[in-house]
Simulated assay, not measured.
Amino acid sequence: MTAVTTPAAVRRPHLTRWVLRLHRPELVAWAGLVLLGAALLLWLGGPLTDAAADGWRQYNACDWSDKCSYDQDAILRYKDAYNYLTLPLAALPLLVGAWAGAALTGRELESGTAQLAWAQGVTPARWLATRLALPAVAVTAGTSLLVFLHHRAWSAARGRIGTAKSWWDPWTFHTNGPSTVALALAALAVGALAGLTLRRALPALAVSLVATAGVWGLAQWLMPHLWPAVTRVTGLKHGYDGLYSGITVDQGLVTRTGEHIPEPVCSAHTTEECLRMFEKRNAVGFFHTYHPYAHYGPLQLTTSALALALAGLFTVAAFLVLRRLTGALRPGKGATA
């Protein structure tokens, strides 16, 4: 007695294999990019960091009474390598969004490959779900590995290299945590939506790039306001020197009534003249509202949650656009592909 295989059971693995075979070059390129990035980040967090740290120890040991030598080249190599690896990793969502718009959906609709799949019994919803799920797994795995190695490299240099980037540097902040992974997933959904809406590869690529950059900028703009900040106050004579560093949310003057007001522009030639001007405005000190390093984890989680929420909204919008598109393409609707 033989088992009966339903058509749906036959089609489901076929669709997955078809998607993998169709996008095999991109998958191979992505795997190669991740492996290359991982190797470079291991190099950055290992030999380059150790050499630069030795250079900084030599520099700090100098008394400058005599000619002092230190390994400046090692310090500069680390600085350049860090920037060259951090900026592309921060921009990785742009690459994901551009590919999703141009190749994942836009090219398939433009060439008629999607319509061919639908005609062979693959439902549009499952077609889109498969195209989003498989890249999402690859993007999550690859980006998570790179983010982990970047944070490892940054941590190895913290406190050892004088020119190491601070945790609140915008590029460092995102590439050190899960927000880059979440932004890449949001870019994937943005690209899929752009491809379904425009149905042409090149316009979808351009729109995906602009929209992904907008999502990245929105996340960065909202990030300081997603978690309660702390406020520190000092007297006028101490200026901002007694305050703490981190992600600044607001700063200015504190009046006698406790009101926080913006610091007025002072064009005086001396600090004392500026302080007298501030006192005429009833100012008694400075305030600084900011996020310290202890807020790094909460800020990462809230920013990632925001990006994932946007990814969910874009995904729902993509399915709605697909439903409208396939409804218009049905016979008797008066529309053509």
Rank of each mutant, 00 (worst) to 15 (best):
G112K: 09
A133C: 02
Q115N: 13
G177W: 00
L132D: 02
T113H: 13
F173D: 02
A141Y: 01
W118K: 09
S144Q: 01
A91N: 08
A90S: 08
R158L: 12
W99A: 15
A184P: 06
S155I: 08
D169N: 11
L92H: 05
T172R: 14
T130W: 11
L116I: 11
P124F: 06
L183G: 01
S144K: 00
A129S: 11
L145K: 03
L188D: 13
K79N: 14
L145H: 07
A186D: 10
G191Q: 11
A119T: 14
K79H: 10
L145D: 03
L85N: 05
A189H: 11
K79R: 14
T130E: 06
Y78R: 03
P88W: 13
A156S: 15
T175W: 08
G121Y: 08
L183I: 01
D169V: 04
I161S: 05
T140I: 02
E110K: 00
L183S: 07
W154A: 00
L183W: 02
L188Q: 14
V122K: 10
L185A: 05
L89F: 14
A81V: 06
G121P: 07
A153I: 04
V147I: 14
S111E: 12
K79F: 11
P135R: 02
V96H: 09
P178Q: 12
A186Y: 06
L132W: 04
A141W: 00
A102V: 13
A136Y: 09
P88D: 12
Y84C: 10
R107M: 04
V122C: 12
L95I: 12
L132V: 07
G142S: 05
I161E: 00
G159Q: 12
R160H: 14
E110A: 11
V190K: 03
A98L: 15
P93T: 08
R158N: 13
A119M: 14
R152Y: 10
H151M: 01
A153L: 05
A182S: 08
S166D: 04
Y82W: 14
S155A: 15
A103V: 09
A102Q: 15
A186W: 06
K165G: 00
W99N: 15
A129F: 04
L188P: 12
L132Y: 02
A186F: 07
P88K: 10
A187E: 03
A98K: 10
A125C: 04
F148I: 03
P178I: 14
V190H: 01
A184C: 12
Y84N: 08
A186I: 11
A157V: 01
A114E: 09
S111G: 05
L94E: 00
L134G: 04
